[in-house]
Design a protein around this nucleic acid. Structure first.
Lengths: 163, 163
DNA sequence: CTCATTGGTGGGTGAATACCTATGATTGGT
DNA sequence: ACCAATCATAGGTATTCACCCACCAATGAG
């Protein structure tokens, strides 16, 4: 019934946007079953990939406001997935550390993600899925460090893709 | 500074979500310069690809609420990009038709989109961009007509996401 | 004619998200 | 000892988005 206009299908930006949104919402739905959201998974991943962080580091690494990190870490700590400890050297800082439970849960979340991914990418064979991943990785890397300026060194001020 | 956790980069769903979001916000930023939003472009595209629509058709085609279509068409009509005319046979219906100005503007929007796309996909050569487009197209088609189903272990809408 | 249905319109709600400010604790520099 | 800077934390704000409901006009069936 709902045929998408070919004009839009011809735009890779549109396809990216649409499939990206689908990916996001499906993944979010899975996480919601565990009362978690995407940021929770991102924080958990950062902690396990790079080791314990001070909250400030988490914020800058993930490109999120430091006041929002607090709530996310709050949730994670409440669920026993991370531990918070004041830094003995600098008692302003709070070091966030993943717990064994946190590691276990992240592994499950990754399984969830892979399952969502398998469902979404079903029409592609293994080789094609690899291709897609590789291409997206490069695009992501590029997009990641040239935020919004279409020109090489334009006005960098606007940080987030906000309003 | 902001290195993304490899655990996340390994997930195609994450890459899709992230690059998709970037694509959307960049495109939206371009459209905003003309006081338009993504839906405006979508509606315009549908009208030009498939010819005049009754609003109800637009809604079902684009998968948007019929009450929201009204406002979008409102804007487009105000900008002179579409014309609204009551159907003489069934005077409940309003047929929306693209104007020449609408066609011209859509062409410009598509140029904008292609320019955004060129910036985003810069690290890929022409062949790779084609590959990406083809892969995404297939994924999109698949996702498009299997909305959220294919749930491995049930509980579709069970728990409220939080608050 | 009556009534159920359909299409368009306006208005509103609620959730999600990002962003911004103020405060208190703590630190390091001078 | 004082001051500016830093960090965590707790609020608030603003905007976007999808969704839902009530209303009116018009239609078509009986």
């Amino acid at each position: 019934m709902s045929e998408t206009p070919p004009s839009l299908l011809g735009l890779t930006t549109y396809l990216l946007s649409k499939t990206g949104k689908a990916a996001r919402s499906r993944l979010a739905a899975r996480l919601a079953e565990r009362d978690l959201r995407l940021w929770h998974m991102a924080v958990l991943s950062a902690l396990i990939d790079f080791g314990p962080h001070v909250q400030r580091e988490l914020a800058s690494r993930l490109g999120i406001d430091r006041s929002d990190i607090v709530k996310i870490v709050d949730d994670l700590a409440l669920a026993g997935l991370v531990g918070r400890a004041r830094d003995t050297a600098d008692r302003r800082r709070v070091t966030v550390t993943p717990t064994p439970a946190g590691r276990a849960v992240l592994a499950e979340l990754q399984d969830d993600a892979r399952s969502v991914q398998a469902a979404m990418l079903a029409p592609l064979n293994a080789r094609e899925q690899g291709q897609l991943a590789a291409l997206l990785k490069r695009v992501h890397a590029h997009v990641h460090d040239s935020p919004a300026g279409s020109n090489v060194h334009g006005s960098p001020a606007a940080s987030g893709p906000g309003r």
